[in-house]
Design a protein around this nucleic acid. Structure first.
Lengths: 153, 153
DNA sequence: CAATTTGGGACCGAATTGGTACTGTATTGG
DNA sequence: CCAATACAGTACCAATTCGGTCCCAAATTG
């Protein structure tokens, strides 16, 4: 359906909160309270994000999670990749299983790769820093003329 | 999984064939033979494409399908929309059900809409005409500097 | 050592997808 | 006017994926 999973959706919301309160560490329980989602779900997502190196984790009584990098250095593409694997709009653009029967005679395949890359790059341009404050203009010319790169200003 | 359905994938392949043989009409059975997919599947897709006005259909003995518009005027976004409904990367970007509980207090929502639009526009730029012949350069600068619009040259 | 918090699984109901089948309607041609 | 052909619409089913829960192990604190 060309839709991101709810886990990824939630994950972005959660990480946005981390970005807004950059520096401090938050326990899963706290995040669950903020985002208003059941704790098990939040935990699952945080684990995945930590496993992929977007969050640094600390066990124990005063443990919790912290952003592993600066908000400007975490992209939406990173988050999606952490929570639902490599971004591949079609099966044949997924480099894992390159077993497409039509591959050889199918002239469309090469274009799918390009479409996929276009989407990928679009997602790669949006960082957590931008997500914290809804800036409309930069995101708009993301796919228009767009000479200069993003800045959090 | 941020993946397009197989139906849409197939549909693009099929329509690309129509674009390559623009003008003539093809029966579902013929298309199935070309694309090497089971007839019922091909039929289902062709019906959906016709219902959405991308193909013109003709019943009867010498019936079949024809492109309803010129290949330059059919975009990948059109095809996806015909086969799997409106393009909405998250549930809350789908205008149909605007019942997102978090909607109000969620600052990320507005940005999701922008992300969605970025992807949407990327898909809208690619026409069937381009799909027929794998042109690499135009698709690449689709999201780069890209001052001038596409041309099939 | 007890409480807390993350790590890593397994697990299950529900929704979606991919694919098939069936019945109806229009068109052609003998 | 009838038979063959080809699209139209819908219902249906198996298989996969998703969303969410639960449980137990490992680490940290005090």
């Amino acid at each position: 359906m060309l839709r991101v999973t709810k886990l990824a959706d939630y994950g972005i919301v959660m990480l946005t909160y981390f970005a807004a309160h950059h520096g401090s560490t938050h326990a899963a329980r706290d995040i669950a309270g903020v985002v208003r989602l059941p704790l098990p779900v939040v935990s699952k997502i945080l684990k995945a994000l930590a496993r992929d190196g977007l969050l640094a984790s600390q066990r124990g009584t005063k443990g919790g999670y912290t952003l592993a990098r600066k908000p400007e250095e975490i992209t939406v593409a990173d988050i999606i990749r952490a929570l639902e694997g490599p971004i591949a709009v079609t099966e044949c653009t997924d480099s894992i299983n390159g077993d497409c029967e039509l591959e050889v005679r199918c002239p469309v395949r090469t274009n799918w790769h390009l479409i996929n890359r276009a989407i990928h790059q679009a997602l790669e341009r949006i960082t957590l820093a931008e997500m914290t404050q809804p800036l409309h203009e930069p995101l708009v010319n993301l796919q228009m003329p767009a000479g200069q790169p993003f800045h959090v200003s």
